[in-house]
């Protein structure tokens, strides 16, 4: 009776330990993988057209979803913000509210989440399928490193695309906010822009936003690439890897956002 309970507890603990060790192995693998990607990055700049091609598939192809979402996020921000601000009689501050929310947080974060869903999953599925159909093996047998030829260009394309997408997101979001606040609600045009300019700092807000989006670009692309590269070469394996890309990227983006924000905001 007692010994039976003991073995059950031991089994549970063994299960936890096994999971933990597995996760650590995977994490170690991911770190090693990232190291290789950086090591073999020379190729993606020497043969720039490889990277440009991937910027097309990750950056340009994500434009539509990013821009449309940005427009709506900006408009909703303005509507909600106005609703609250006018209770305190400071509805001209709507411009500040929209701009700061977008530049500091929503621009980089929402772009990264959409990027993980749109471009990240595509990268994972593509690499996973290339692995499953032995394309990566074939490349290796042709004395071509798949990391240099396939992975590194996608990595740099993601890192370059993300800040550009985030900047476009913020810009279009501000435009959406403007359209709701000024022509629709009737906030004064001059107050909208001047308040915004007086309170949005180039160094503290805009540059920090760009830094965030670069970090998110590194995290999202690396996770997508690793999950694809690490996927078991079966249909089920690839589909699970794609799901993991979205889950892990989103968690990584939100956690990194908290960490970076806490360093960027000086008490």
């Amino acid at each position: 009776m007692f010994s039976g309970l003991l073995t059950k507890v031991a089994n549970v603990l063994r299960g936890i330990g096994h999971k933990l060790v597995d996760q650590l192995w995977r994490f170690g693998g991911a770190v090693r993988f990232s190291g290789y990607v950086l090591l073999y990055s020379g190729e993606s700049f020497r043969r720039l057209h490889l990277t440009i091609r991937e910027i097309y598939f990750t950056g340009v192809m994500s434009l539509i979803i990013i821009l449309v979402s940005a427009f709506f996020v900006g408009m909703v921000l303005a509507l909600q913000g106005y609703n609250t601000l006018q209770k305190y009689g400071s509805s001209e501050a709507i411009g500040v509210l929209v701009a700061l929310s977008l530049v500091r947080e929503l621009g980089p974060v929402v772009t990264a989440l959409l990027f993980a869903g749109r471009a990240g999953t595509a990268i994972t599925a593509e690499i996973g399928l290339m692995k499953a159909t032995e394309q990566l093996s074939a490349m290796e047998m042709m004395a071509v490193s798949p990391i240099a030829r396939v992975v590194a260009p996608r990595f740099w394309a993601g890192v370059i695309s993300m800040p550009l997408l985030a900047a476009l997101f913020s810009m279009v979001g501000v435009l959406g906010g403007y359209l709701v606040a000024v022509p629709l609600i009737g906030v004064d045009n001059g107050a909208f822009w001047s308040q915004m300019q007086a309170n949005v700092d180039f160094r503290e807000d805009i540059v920090n936003g760009v830094i965030k989006s670069v970090v998110f670009g590194v995290a999202c692309t690396m996770i997508a690439l690793f999950e694809g590269f690490d996927a078991p070469p079966t249909a089920e394996g690839v589909s699970r890897a794609t799901t993991r890309t979205v889950v892990n990227s989103s968690l990584a983006v939100l956690a990194l956002d908290f960490i970076m924000t806490s360093f960027m905001i000086n008490p």
Binding site: A99, V103, A167, V174, Q197, V200, F202, I206
Partner: peptide, 9 residues
């Protein structure tokens, strides 16, 4: 644009 129009550069 963010630097010029939105920010105070």
């Amino acid at each position: 644009g963010l630097a010029m129009k939105v920010g105070n550069l």
